[in-house]
Design a protein around this nucleic acid. Structure first.
Lengths: 189, 189
DNA sequence: ATACTCAATGAACAAAAATTCAATGAAATA
DNA sequence: TATTTCATTGAATTTTTGTTCATTGAGTAT
């Protein structure tokens, strides 16, 4: 293995473990030494790759922001299909690629008070709730989404998804719901 | 005001502010000095009333455990009514008595990794998910709750409620959902 | 073969947070 | 009134956590 490969491997290794720990334990609860210990490396090595805990966390959030921007914004005839697709993607990723769920949870956590302000601002640039309320309104006109304040509906949906992702990160063996159950929060019957 | 009254007042004051901050910022993110500052008292005074941050947190969790035990366990003809009643209580308490929602969120947070083990154990003695899955099964037999793994349904419901409560603690001005929307996660149509 | 680079370590150092404590003065008690 | 109690403070201390750094040794290039 070349030096460059080794370096990239370590960086990824650190990133993924940090993501896992930050999401399951929270930012302040996760010590740099926890991450190092979990990987079986020295604390010094971690600082060789990332100049500070805050930078490491920020890099993860940055990654999340990019990911959201790059995800194709397909348009659907029925907005309900959009919510179904996203949620289905999250739920099916849950086991094979846990980092997908973890990243989702991280983005939500990063917006909360207690997180360094700069990082919070960054995380807040991805605001699903405001974005989705437009889709909700469309669906209401179409008659596929139930009546009610679009913001409240959007908020309800995403808070629930977030609750599920966070819990799943902490307790991975808990059985996950069907996409349908959750989408029924907004669906009109 | 007598000394005793003053003491009780301070203790309550500290408890409520600590609850608020622990829930919005998280355990480790909340410094003892944050609590003191928010109340306009010295850090030393906080230690005069509570011997440590951990004890303070534990006392809150203890309070939550008591509260759950003392809440009347009314039985309903239809288990769906039980879920409706609980959720309705939480949602309507949201504005007048925020500590009700906060306590709910705290109990969930206290069960996560990163929290001192002793406290986690205590918080886990109140396990809504396991308790509710029995009710879910009853509802399924009655035909009022949709088919599916009772554990998964129970988990879905409570994770969603928790997601809502946590988000509400952090962003109190966000409009809350109708009870119906959330109960529809488990309801059979 | 020689010099250079860089992943990796562990101990030292700094910063932040938790905790202790002696001192103060206002209220309670004698 | 004299004495005790105790809420309160702010500064000192301890503990925890984050960060720096000199050193090592294995790989890489010249």
């Amino acid at each position: 293995m070349t030096r460059k490969e080794q370096k990239e491997m370590r960086q990824k290794q650190i990133m993924f473990k940090a993501l896992e720990l930050f999401v399951t334990k929270g930012y302040a609860e996760t010590k740099i030494s926890d991450i190092a210990e979990a990987l079986g490396i020295s604390v010094g090595l971690l600082f060789h790759y990332y100049e500070s805990k805050e930078k490491l966390y920020m890099e993860l959030v940055q990654m999340g922001v990019e990911g959201t921007k790059n995800s194709e914004k397909t348009t659907f005839d029925d907005p309900v299909a959009y919510f179904e697709k996203i949620l289905d993607g999250l739920l099916s990723a849950a086991h094979e690629t846990p980092w997908v769920c973890q990243m989702f949870a991280l983005m939500a956590q990063a917006q909360r008070p207690g997180i360094p302000e700069e990082i919070r601002q960054l995380a807040m640039t991805v605001d699903q709730i405001r974005f989705s309320s437009v889709l909700i309104e469309q669906g209401q006109k179409l008659g596929t989404i139930r009546e009610g304040d679009p913001m409240a509906l959007s908020n309800a949906f995403w808070c629930c998804v977030q609750g599920l992702m966070e819990y799943h990160a902490a307790v991975p063996d808990m059985p996950l719901p069907e996409t349908e159950w959750i989408v029924d929060i907004i669906r009109k019957k």
